[in-house]
Design a protein around this nucleic acid. Structure first.
Length: 779
DNA sequence: CAGTGAGCGAGCTTCCGCTTGACTT
């Protein structure tokens, strides 16, 4: 029996630390928070100075029971939760639950899992910092108040039956996406003409090459033509050449947020996928902890990386840097995300290797030498006018970190047409061999829509959310239906090109694709109307600076200069007034927009939110007549749908004629477009448009779907309406809407199951349903 | 599975931040 019990948050850490500390220590994990506010009545006694009511959630009871047992036996308990606000609170909760005195129980902290760091921590224990704990309680309680007061307002004011939610983080995340969408919709594109001259010259190998030089942009088509005209018959002479050295530095080691961004840009992963793979790597011991906001590398990691760079590329490529966090909201409880052993450049598992290699390269590059460049700018005179052209070239003199890694840019930060090539050797005074000059119409672009990762980047900049919540926050706003992730097809656009060649100007119009986007976040109508509603009635909580300002107050609580209950009270009192006022006075949320008047009837055509989502409506509900309704299509929005598009929606359902003697009609239902025939329903195949599809396409589809259904069916008990079906997880039982999972053995003999056996399996599963996450019984 | 669109009102939903597995049709 070990004398000392040391408690950390993560089980993977526990193992490593136990190895470092040896047999005097038993190291256990508490798996994060062990208590939380109960849900009834917010779990807070608002009238008793916001006294919190904490409970141990069901899924934590086993862990807590075991820790209790071990704590009782141990001579000394050490609290080694993370060194940040949440970690401090976890230590305090452990004291409360394990009957330890926070004023005397040893509390230790470290930012890296290395032998010297752990040893030093054990040599310098402190006690739980109750001010910091109170800052966390204020944070927790405030978030609970915001979430549990705001969400019910939505339930009352929205006519949708979804379980809607609002919160300090998620609601602002949706707002960012909503505002970006409106910016894009309101964006007025303008164009100008880019001037580009093409010259020929000999390179150092005496080979003929071409290079381009740019002139200043021309605002209009006429300006562009006039400019080209003024260049007709000109000669072009190099007036000046400037050569400047330049350097590029590597990016800092990964944090959760930058890892998510790069994995999105380079590998196309969503943030959940990145975190899932990183978790696997962490649990297998290949990388350090993946939920971190720190860019710091431990001394041992720096030494390890330096050795690896030297070995692989030579000392010339080593450049030790100490990275500092620019982000004020960072709490830096951990190291940056890095490989645990730099000699492993890859891992065996193909699934995780791509992410691992990214982490390995980024870590290596962060301690590699700057890249050295030479930038050349040549100014070129035009003999027939006063304008000048500029040609730019860039030569890499020393690759440094670029040897293995270069951070990608977001669409947002990429400027058009600045790709730098190399220039052939030219000298001042040289008359250049002119080929042609082009004026190409270019357009201004609105800011791009957010990807999951660029949204995380923005949230982090605003100090909203934490590394452990970025991915779950995005899942939440998707699940609630406030936001959709999808592609957008581009549209064809004409652009004008003028070419001056052999002193003659030719004008052409070419086509390009514009506005195509992949895996971007779009607000739904629900997201838009809920954002408007919340912004109108709860402007302070929806403010982008709200989190930063309360964080400032949490800092004061942590410093002991502010009382947490006073801080919470200062927020709650006016907030509660807003809640009551809104419940009493605010209209129901409709998001109504008039699209026009139907000429034949004089009835209003409106788009609005209905009980089942966005819809269009002709006429008003009154005694004489029922209005006509139609659902919006997937990519349509209340804010942008036109009158003509709305009227189009009323063309469904369409009757296509008879097949096998029965009518076939198509419509759009809850699960998308479908055909109905002989009382059966068939989802339309991808690409089939219910507005235009013909019977000739539908009939064979119905036949195909009948066959596919037969293949999925293993057995049918007609009388009991029970089916045994083949699914992606093997055979299962289906009765109505309910599915019943079979065990391995039962699956193997699925085809031979009798009705009695099936019934017995169902009875057992009904009596003992498989446990679901978060399922809890009422006390 | 393929309807609906008003209002009443059982009894339900809901937050953010720490952590992993259990579960999925």
């Amino acid at each position: 029996m070990a004398k000392n019990l040391l408690i950390v948050e993560s089980p993977a850490k526990a193992k490593t630390i136990e190895n470092i500390l040896g047999s005097d220590f038993e190291v256990k994990s508490c798996y994060g928070h062990i208590r939380d506010l109960e849900k009834d009545d917010m779990g807070i006694d608002v009238n008793k100075n916001y006294a919190p009511r904490y409970i141990v959630p069901e899924d934590k009871q086993k862990v807590v029971a075991e820790l209790k047992k071990l704590a009782k036996k141990a001579e000394q308990v050490w609290l080694a939760t993370d060194e940040d606000r949440e970690g401090e609170a976890i230590s305090w909760h452990l004291c409360e639950v394990l009957n330890l005195d926070p004023k005397t129980t040893k509390r230790i902290v470290f930012h890296e899992i290395t032998k010297p760091a752990i040893r030093a921590a054990v040599d310098h224990p402190r006690f739980v910092d109750l001010n910091l704990v109170n800052a966390q309680q204020a944070r927790r309680i405030l978030d609970r108040i915001v979430g549990f007061e705001l969400s019910p307002v939505l339930w009352r004011k929205m006519s949708m039956r979804n379980s809607l939610s609002a919160g300090r983080v998620q609601s602002v995340a949706v707002r960012l996406i909503a505002e970006r969408e409106r910016e894009i919709n309101a964006f007025g594109t303008t164009s100008s003409f880019k001037i580009e001259a093409l010259f020929a010259a000999k390179d150092i190998n005496n080979k003929n090459v071409t290079f381009t030089a740019e002139g200043s942009r021309q605002d209009t088509n006429q300006d562009a033509e006039k400019f080209l005209q003024s260049c007709a018959g000109a000669s072009y002479k190099v007036r000046d050449i400037q050569v400047k050295p330049a350097r590029k530095s590597p990016a800092a080691p990964f944090t959760t947020s930058t890892l998510q961004q790069e994995a999105s840009r380079k590998l196309g992963y969503g943030v959940s996928k990145t975190m899932l793979l990183a978790q696997k790597l962490y649990e297998s011991g290949f990388i350090t902890y993946m939920r971190t906001d720190s860019v710091n590398l431990s001394d041992t990691a720096i030494a390890d990386t330096r050795a690896q760079i030297s070995k692989q590329f030579g000392d010339k490529y080593v450049q030790i840097r100490k990275y500092k966090n620019k982000n004020e909201s960072a709490q830096e409880a951990h190291e940056a995300i890095r490989p645990t052993y730099m000699e492993n450049a890859t891992v065996k598992d193909a699934d995780t290797n791509r992410l691992y290699e990214l982490i390995w390269k980024r870590t290596m590059a962060s301690l590699m030498a700057d890249a050295e460049l030479e930038k050349t700018t040549a100014k070129i005179d035009i003999s027939t006018n006063k304008a000048e052209l500029a040609a730019q070239g860039e030569v890499l003199k020393f690759d440094g970190f670029l040897k293995i890694y270069m951070e990608d840019k977001d669409d947002e930060d990429v400027e058009e047409g600045n790709e730098e090539g190399s220039l052939p050797p030219i000298r001042v005074g040289q008359v250049l061999d002119f080929k042609e000059m082009k004026a190409v119409e270019r357009f201004t672009r609105p800011a791009p829509r957010y990807t999951e990762a660029s949204l995380v980047k923005k949230l982090e900049e605003l100090g909203i959310g934490r590394p452990s919540t970025y991915a779950p926050t995005i899942s939440t706003i998707l699940k609630r239906g406030y936001v959709e992730k999808r592609d957008k097809e581009g549209v064809k656009r004409d652009y004008r090109v003028l070419v001056l060649k052999l002193d003659k100007i030719t004008k052409t119009t070419e086509q390009e694709n514009t506005g195509a986007e992949k895996s971007k976040l779009f607000p739904t109508d629900l997201g838009l109307v809920v954002t408007d509603f919340l912004s109108q009635h709860f402007a302070d909580v929806m403010d982008y600076g709200f989190t930063a300002s309360i964080e400032h107050e949490f800092d004061e609580i942590a410093a002991g200069t502010k009382i947490w209950t006073k801080m919470v009270d200062g927020f709650y009192k006016p907030f509660k007034k807003d809640i009551e006022n809104t419940l009493e006075n605010a209209e129901r949320i409709k998001g109504e927009r008039e699209l026009g008047i139907e000429p034949e009837t004089g009835k209003r055509v409106i788009a609005r939110m209905g009980r089942f989502g966005p819809m269009v409506q002709i006429g008003e509900a009154n005694e004489e007549e029922k209005p006509r309704f139609a659902k919006l299509k997937a990519n349509q929005s209340i804010e942008t749908i036109s009158y003509a598009e709305a009227m189009e929606l009323f063309k469904l359902p369409r009757n296509l004629g008879k097949f096998e003697g029965e009518d076939v009609s198509v419509n759009i239902g809850r699960f998308g477009p479908y055909a109905s025939h002989n009382k059966k329903f068939y989802s339309l195949n991808k690409g089939m448009d219910p507005y235009s599809v013909m019977l000739e396409e539908i009939a064979p589809m119905i036949e195909e779907k009948r066959v596919a259904k037969d293949e999925r069916t293993i057995k049918v008990f007609e009388k009991e309406k029970i089916q045994v079906l083949k699914g992606p997880y093997g055979p299962y039982i289906k009765q109505g809407l309910r599915n019943f999972k079979l065990t391995k053995e039962q699956q193997d003999k699925a085809a031979d199951l009798t009705i009695d056996e099936v019934k017995q399996i169902m009875e057992e599963l009904k009596a003992n349903p498989p446990k679901k996450k978060g399922a809890k019984k009422k006390a």
